[in-house]
Nucleic acid binder design. Structure first.
Lengths: 113, 113
DNA sequence: CAAATACGTTACTAAATAGTAACGTATTGG
DNA sequence: CCAATACGTTACTATTTAGTAACGTATTTG
């Protein structure tokens, strides 16, 4: 039973899919136009990536005649940030600011044992 | 040729691996103790996850006698945030603030067709 | 209505990933 | 030194994922 968060993580794990999202940051785009941006991949290849992104809720598609217009939904990325990434902010701040301290502490710890 | 960023994304895509990182937020931990936290997995299973995390630079291991002490390095997560996630902040802010507007627009669009 | 366009699906293959079981190595306490 | 402990690896299987080729559907345009 994969959670919806899990689908988002899996979707983001692939370079092509992150590139698709990056393209959509500039605005909505039809499926065919997206396919054209990836000459190395078949149409179906790209479409399967789009599917994964849609299932993760990162892309919405609306129909307009024979066009399918894909647009970005950044909210799931926000959730990833809020529920997970932000928990590490304190930690990485410590690693950056307190690097010298950490080294000193580590050294004296090893002498005490 | 997977970039180092790519290794981080792949590493984060797995629930077990994110759980390992969450455990390490409380402080460093030996390999065996980490294994014990995942009764459903074999030792090797957990160790392979640790390996993936180490290759992504998310975990450092130092040797201390017969113990291997694994500790968190949150810097790669920070990079993911800076180089990618943060680009979407403007976008998700727009989606949140403009949500009511978007709904109204969508409704009137549907009435027009 | 027929051709062109935009999109989608079915069926298949190749490769990467997750996982287990069983065996091997290094460190340390009695 | 030898038994226990902590860690690691080899060899294998099952599952998932990525990808292609080829075929099918719906919507316009002349």
């Amino acid at each position: 039973m994969p959670s919806s968060q899990d689908l988002v993580w899996k979707a983001l794990a692939d370079t092509t899919r992150r590139e698709i999202l990056d393209l959509l940051r500039d605005g909505p785009c039809t499926t065919t136009r997206l396919v054209e941006q990836f000459p190395g991949l078949s149409r179906f290849g790209v479409m399967k990536h789009i599917d994964v992104l849609r299932q993760a809720g990162l892309i919405n598609t609306r129909h307009e005649g024979r066009l399918r217009i894909n647009s970005l939904n950044a909210i799931p990325i926000r959730r990833i940030y809020e529920r997970w990434v932000s928990n590490y902010e304190e930690h990485w701040a410590k690693s950056l600011i307190g690097l010298k301290d950490a080294i000193e502490k580590d050294r004296s710890n090893r002498q005490n044992t």
